[in-house]
């Protein structure tokens, strides 16, 4: 008897929810805003779908409807990826410890 690959993906999904649960509880509350911006950036990994959508298909007509939606999704996801990671970096750079000499 063979297991449907869907079951494998479902297992990954369920286990990842648990990983997420424990990892996020360990995030310190003062970093909750960077947490939101970084989760934002990583959820834009949806761009992989957009890349496949825009690059695949016949090469003569690269602007049929499916490709156009792919390209649009690429722009949106790219805004998020760059914006999300960079703004997180900018925020995290501000968190400083007390200086000893003061």
């Amino acid at each position: 008897m063979e297991i449907d690959p869907f079951i494998f993906r479902l297992s990954i999904f369920i286990l990842s929810i648990f990983v997420g649960y424990y990892v996020v509880w360990s995030v310190t509350p003062s970093l909750h805003t960077p947490l939101m911006s970084v989760t934002n950036a990583i959820s834009s990994v949806i761009i992989v779908g957009a890349i496949i959508a825009s690059l695949s298909g016949n090469t003569e007509n690269i602007f049929d409807t499916a490709n156009i939606f792919g390209y649009l999704a690429i722009i949106l996801a790219a805004v998020n990826i760059f914006g999300g990671f960079l703004v997180t970096q900018r925020m995290l750079a501000m968190y400083k410890k007390k200086k000893k000499d003061k």
Binding site: I17, V19, Y21, L35, V45
Partner: peptide, 12 residues
């Protein structure tokens, strides 16, 4: 990658 990320962000 998308499934793992989705689950992480969803639970977060």
């Amino acid at each position: 990658a998308l499934i793992i990320t989705g689950a992480l962000v969803g639970s977060s």
